[in-house]
Design a protein around this nucleic acid. Structure first.
Lengths: 225, 225
DNA sequence: ATATGTGAATGAGTTCACAGCG
DNA sequence: CGCTGTGAACTCATTCACATAT
């Protein structure tokens, strides 16, 4: 079932793509410390993976290392950034300016990568008009207009669960195809639209599962005075 | 050499554990709508997975369905909750009360599961003493005392990157073995300590990668170096 | 000499397809 | 019948180990 008419194998495995940001972060740390060259072993440790995996991952991007030496830090930063599309500037809109939306707006990690928070949008008249992280909060009625005007291509949903699907439909209708969803609902979207979700409570639940297994330990009784 | 004398395979695959919270959420939604029974097909749709996967996942917990009928919603909620350890009450401490810490403290999804935010801790004297989500923010000097006194077993790190490892070391030293890390650093911890990390910018980077591929047309030439 | 890049081996996770139970 | 539960087939991911390049 291999279609032989597919000439480009530009396909980087999902698991690899998910780790590239990790490598990038580690490499940026090294660049700041003026480290010029790094071995797969050292970079793997800094990123928290094993070195065989790291080399296999990087091999999907190309042959950017030097045998007997390692990888040039700056060059690798550039190659990974380019692969991830971080050499271009992405305009991001955050919809929902509660505590989470605010946290995201102020989050340094976005700006320092290729992301620019281009709009903050909320439905609450109490919040609309406020300045947050140097941006004016706009009303949800402006959603479509703002997205078009500012060339927003990625939307972050930080709304209450009940509002998420409606906002999602609206942004998809104006052509947005990349959505990062923090609301605890399964969004339904047409084919071709990418949704990634972050559910803060899911991670806690996974921890609870493992914690429960560890029982054997001492700190059980919440008994003392 | 897998010995066939291994009687209990209590090991639930990681991938399955990671999806149980999803099923639980979908089931809770159904319970609220007073739906008594659900097929694997319907539940799968509600959770955003395919039905074969769902059935395989549930089969790891036991045989809780009825052939020809489906699953009893309430019973399945109970079984999954128990498996995840959500039938007990987990005391959680949030360290770092910036915007993110605040968002987490106010996040309804924690309380509604088995989690109780038992402490908010920060280093900034400006913030210490404030009341947030009905809790008094305590000083980082009290970290160890508070953890012990309140029986905290899960710590959420929402500190700046620079502070995360030190706080991590301190909580591990008092016996905490489950950590949810929002700081963009790779924490090093001894064996037996579970760290899950959520990096908000990683998800955006993955979206950017896919968005870049969509462009349909030739990607705008980014000049090399 | 040394560390990359990669086939080959192993393992984990997903999907198929249907036997078997209600 | 209909729908679950599950071996078997398959796909994807990780790890091993070493030939290969500098």
């Amino acid at each position: 079932m291999k279609s032989p008419s597919q000439p480009r194998d530009r396909g980087i495995p999902d698991a690899t793509v998910a780790r590239l940001p990790l490598y990038l972060r580690a490499l940026n740390g090294m660049a700041e410390k003026a480290i010029a060259t790094v071995s797969s072993e050292d970079l793997a440790v800094a990123a928290g993976v094993n070195s065989a995996k790291l080399r296999k991952d990087l091999s999907h991007l190309g042959s950017y290392g030097t045998r007997g030496v390692g990888y040039d830090v700056e060059y690798l930063v550039y190659q990974i950034s380019r692969e991830l599309g971080l050499t271009q500037d992405w305009a991001v809109a955050i919809v929902g300016v509660g505590n989470l939306g605010r946290a995201l707006a102020n989050y340094g990690g976005f700006v320092s990568r290729g992301f620019r928070v281009a709009a903050l949008i909320d439905a609450d008249p109490e919040v609309v008009g406020d300045d947050i992280a140097g941006l004016n909060v706009e009303h949800i009625d402006e959603l479509e207009a703002v997205i078009k005007r500012r060339g927003v291509s990625i939307v972050v949903l930080a709304t209450p669960a009940a509002a998420a699907q409606e906002v999602c439909d609206r942004v998809v209708a104006v052509g947005v195809t990349s959505i990062l969803n923090f609301a605890p609902v399964v969004l339904s979207v047409p084919d071709g639209v990418d949704v990634r979700k972050v559910d803060l409570s899911i991670e806690l639940q996974i921890l609870a599962f493992h914690e429960q297994r560890k029982a054997g330990g001492p700190l059980m009784a919440v008994d003392s005075q």
